[in-house]
Design a protein around this nucleic acid. Structure first.
Length: 517
RNA sequence: GCCCCCAUCGUCUAGGGGACCAGGACGUGGCCCUUUCAAGGCCAAGACUGGGGUUCGAAUCCCCAUGGGGGCACCA
């Protein structure tokens, strides 16, 4: 009988027991306003928010605007709008405040500076006077010598006299670096992965305070998470490698380390590399893969579908269910069903889900969503016109934008007839098509009403009479009235178009067939 | 190069030593329905990366290999 090993399954058992801890759940999403809102960030925000809501905790939004060079004032608006669009609300943060503010790191610089000084005073950190040029040189040398890359700790070993001299020479220009242990190991506990152990010799004396006086992520993050009483850190997987540094920072301050879960990354649909705005990917169909949240909005996805989709990537509902509401997700979301493996972005599944949600939607709600889409495409339909068109598109579109191809022509100011040859259906010729259209025209003209059912009652027997398949007659009429080979069902379409317009177009088609003979 | 993480159908996933000749979903193919396109219904093909252990028994636990991913900034 072998001794039981400490295995992943042990962690999982422990996790379930320990999860509802006495400490109130306080989690944060802490984006950096340096550019558009990335879908990966949106997923991290969603999972964090779901976790907070599931545990009756507090969801904090904190803006990590400590990078002056990359700061983008537009980014914050995109971020807040994006979160709201997804239905993610925050209990503390911009616009709502909270007792642990301010929630913009740029307004907390004094705090970071104080604690950086504290670290220096307590010999946990040191001032580094190395210029970017020297750092680059060190780097180059390490590369040519095939050594492992990193700061050589030059300033850590300065004598007090040398330090004073450097201070004077550089005009007090310095960064603050954390004094990491030079040997031994550091173990970080990740909720999804268990213990992760690092060799301290691989770890860096990372910069905590930049020469412009702003903190780096490492410092600001640790200080804020501590003072904002964050219980669980949830962030993307790319932070794993700096987690041990953060652990040492907490230890240096003498603060407890929050529980940490590194969420898996979303990969490009090909599975090759992170889903990135820099390396634009395309689907097999040649469609550009959306990456930024506003690209999903513009592509005609609806928030309920995107949220449902995002929860299906890296997390699973269980019970073999793929479709569920946010409320249902909140009721059962937890970290133990988060898959630590990165996943390719299954865009086709989003299309399917989006279509599902569209078909499920109340017609007036769909109309409200569709109107701006039509307007963006250059049409100006009235509310009633959009509502009339909803039944035509609702069962057949996967994204809102697809409605434009189906029914956009209905709102167009001018009608461009299809070339006459397009009117001619399979196994038909120009003369036969012309005759069929003339017969149909006559039948339609005499109708007491122009609703779909009345039209059908007249035209279906006519097709038989003419010895045509329904598809032949209806196809010719479809092209005549819509100038499209693909359109919503004919009778409904003509009903929306109106009798006058429909008949005029049929007459035009008949005339165009004269010229082809 | 160094460090770290991960590994089930093409893809997203279920799976926690026996209930697994591995379940669901998307996509794909076929059939039905049909007025083009959809939607809907039915059916089908399709995976435990490899090798060693542990065990009566491994998709599941351990090790190695391989593959993929992430990181190695005065960016987050």
């Amino acid at each position: 009988m072998a001794l039981p090993h400490l295995t992943a399954s042990h962690f999982k058992e422990q996790r379930i027991v320990n999860e509802p801890s006495a400490m109130p759940v306080r989690v944060r999403f802490a984006p950096s306003p340096t550019g558009p809102f990335h879908i990966g960030g949106a997923r991290t925000a969603l999972f964090t928010w779901l976790f907070a809501r599931r545990h009756g905790g507090t969801f904090i939004l904190r803006i990590e605007d400590t990078d002056r060079k990359r700061y983008d004032p537009e980014a914050l608006r995109l971020l807040l709008d994006g979160l709201r669009w997804l239905g993610i609300d925050w209990d503390e943060g911009p616009e709502v405040g909270g007792e642990f503010g301010p929630y913009f790191q740029s307004e907390r610089t004094e705090l970071y500076r104080q604690w950086a000084d504290w670290l220096i005073e307590h010999d946990k950190a040191y001032r580094c006077y190395c210029t970017p040029e020297r750092l680059a040189e060190v780097r180059e040398r390490q590369k040519t010598n095939r050594e492992s890359l990193g700061y050589d700790r030059h300033c850590r070993n300065l004598t007090p006299a040398e330090r004073d001299q450097q201070h004077a020479e550089t005009g007090g220009h310095y960064v603050v670096r954390l004094k990491m242990p030079l040997d031994g190991e550091t173990t970080v506990h990740d909720i999804l992965r268990g213990d992760i152990t690092f060799d301290n010799r691989q770890l860096q004396d990372l910069v905590l305070l930049k020469s412009d006086g702003f903190p780096t992520y490492h410092l600001a993050n640790v200080i804020d998470d501590h003072f904002m009483q964050v219980s669980h850190i949830m962030r993307a997987e790319e932070w794993i490698s700096t987690a041990p540094v953060h652990k040492h920072l907490y230890d240096a301050f003498g603060w407890p380390t929050p529980k940490i879960a590194h969420l898996p990354v979303i990969l490009s649909p090909s599975g090759k590399g992170k889903l990135s705005k820099r390396s634009v990917a395309f689907t097999d169909g040649g469609r550009k893969v959306p990456v930024l949240l506003h690209e999903f909005v513009e592509a005609g996805y609806v928030p309920e579908a995107l949220v449902n989709f995002l929860t299906n990537v890296g997390w699973s509902f269980g019970d073999d269910r793929e479709v569920f509401t946010v409320q249902e997700t909140i009721e059962r979301f937890d970290l133990d069903r988060v898959n630590p493996a990165g996943s390719a972005f299954p865009l086709e599944k989003l299309d399917w889900l989006n279509g599902l949600y569209i078909r499920d939607m109340a017609p007036d709600k769909l109309a409200a969503l569709l109107k701006p889409v039509f307007e963006h495409a250059g049409y100006t339909p009235s509310d009633d016109q959009v509502l009339a068109v909803v039944p035509l598109v609702q069962p057949r579109i996967k994204t809102l934008n697809e409605a434009i191809d189906f029914v956009g022509f209905i709102f167009a100011d001018t009608f461009t007839p299809a070339p006459p040859e397009d009117l001619i259906q399979k196994k038909m010729d120009a003369a036969g098509t012309k005759a069929a259209l003339e017969q149909a025209l006559a039948a339609l003209e005499g109708l007491p009403d122009f609703d779909a059912a009345t039209q059908e009652a007249a035209l279906r027997p006519l097709a038989k009479e003419l010895g045509l398949n329904p598809g032949q007659l209806f196809g010719a009429l479809r092209v005549a009235t819509t100038a499209q080979q693909v359109a919503p069902p004919l009778f409904e379409t003509m009903a929306v178009l109106g009798r006058d317009t429909s008949l005029a177009r049929i007459r035009g088609a008949i005339a165009s067939l004269d010229h082809t003979g």
